[in-house]
Write a protein that binds this DNA or RNA. Structure first.
Length: 297
DNA sequence: TCCCAGGGCATCA
DNA sequence: TGATGCCATGGG
């Protein structure tokens, strides 16, 4: 097959090392495979199933197709996805200026230089992941995600390996609670996941609809109207799939731990200190959360 | 055994 | 609107 690859330039500063570190930070995500210099991932555009290697360097991302020759629309789809996935068009300087002004966080611009907000462009995957990962340890959450994906997701075969796509909402909408319980999802989580799948399959939740809302609070409200989507999940989904800049997943265990580590919070319920901090990061709240999560490693 | 983990809901005042 | 109890299950 003809070698198809394209290069996507990145805005300074971009750290391949930091972004790859995030993807491979000790957890087993079944949706992609991380190598020292690249990440392998399957995509689907309409009926086209594809497998790609995405080489990550400081200057560009090179997407290389391993399977059948993609259509031009499929290439555009993957390009857009990858730009979104690695938040490649963002200029981080303003964020770094704000970090530098905070004594406890001033080390971050040099320590995590070029770390991009690695997102989850597929809103159903983001929502499912938020529901699965609620209130349980991440290692176990990734196990359940793998069970779900291997049971319901389609896959691309390449060199005797299967590379999975996250299942469609239409598929999960038809799943039975007992089947999901068999994967060790709690009864509630099984319910929430099916509810979310139905809402997306029915077009009640989509990135387009969320973007059409007049403001951020309306987007949160739209999501939290569904059972199983609370304030934490709504913020998480908006930051991961829409790159909404001002999300704060209130109550997040990792966020609180990071803030206590930095002596910004004295105790869990120190809400005023948390509000004071985020007040100084207007427009960059999601990035701040991401960097604080990074600090937990 | 106990506490925690990238919460959410129902109930109650 | 905010506090409380419950759900659920692996990991340390």
């Amino acid at each position: 097959m003809k070698d198809i690859s394209i290069d996507l330039p990145v805005k300074a500063v971009f750290s391949a090392k930091e972004c790859l570190w995030f993807l491979n930070r000790g957890f087993d995500d079944c949706i992609y495979t991380v190598y020292p210099d690249k990440v392998r991932r399957a995509f689907q555009y309409k009926d086209e199933l594809m497998l790609t290697d995405i080489y990550i360097t400081t200057k560009c991302l090179r997407i290389s197709w391993l399977t059948s020759e993609p259509s031009s629309q499929a290439i555009d789809y993957v390009k857009t996805f990858v730009v979104n996935w690695f938040d490649m068009n963002k200029d981080l300087q303003l964020f770094y200026n704000k970090l530098s002004q905070n004594t406890a966080l001033a080390y971050m611009p040099s320590s995590y230089l070029g770390l991009r907000f690695v997102g989850m462009p597929d809103i159903f995957e983001a929502l499912s992941w938020a529901i699965i990962g609620q209130q349980i340890n991440l290692t176990f959450a990734y196990k359940m995600k793998r069970r779900l994906v291997e049971r319901y997701g389609t896959s691309v075969k390449y060199e005797n390996e299967k590379y999975y796509l996250f299942p469609s909402p239409e598929t999960i909408a038809l799943a039975k609670i007992d089947d999901l319980r068999g994967m060790q999802l709690s009864h509630k989580k099984a319910e929430y996941l099916i509810t979310a799948a139905k809402a997306i399959a029915a077009g009640e939740i989509s990135k387009k609809i969320l973007l059409e809302q007049p403001d951020f609070p309306s987007r949160i409200k739209l999501l939290t109207n569904f059972k199983g989507i609370g304030r934490w999940t709504a913020n998480y989904v908006l930051m991961k799939s829409l790159k909404e800049p001002s999300c704060i997943p209130h109550g997040d265990a990792g966020l609180i731990k990071a803030l206590i580590n930095h002596s910004i919070l004295k105790e869990k319920n120190d809400l005023s200190a948390m509000n004071d901090l985020f007040d100084n990061f207007k427009g960059w709240e999601s990035y701040l959360v991401f960097y604080l999560w990074r600090s937990l490693a």
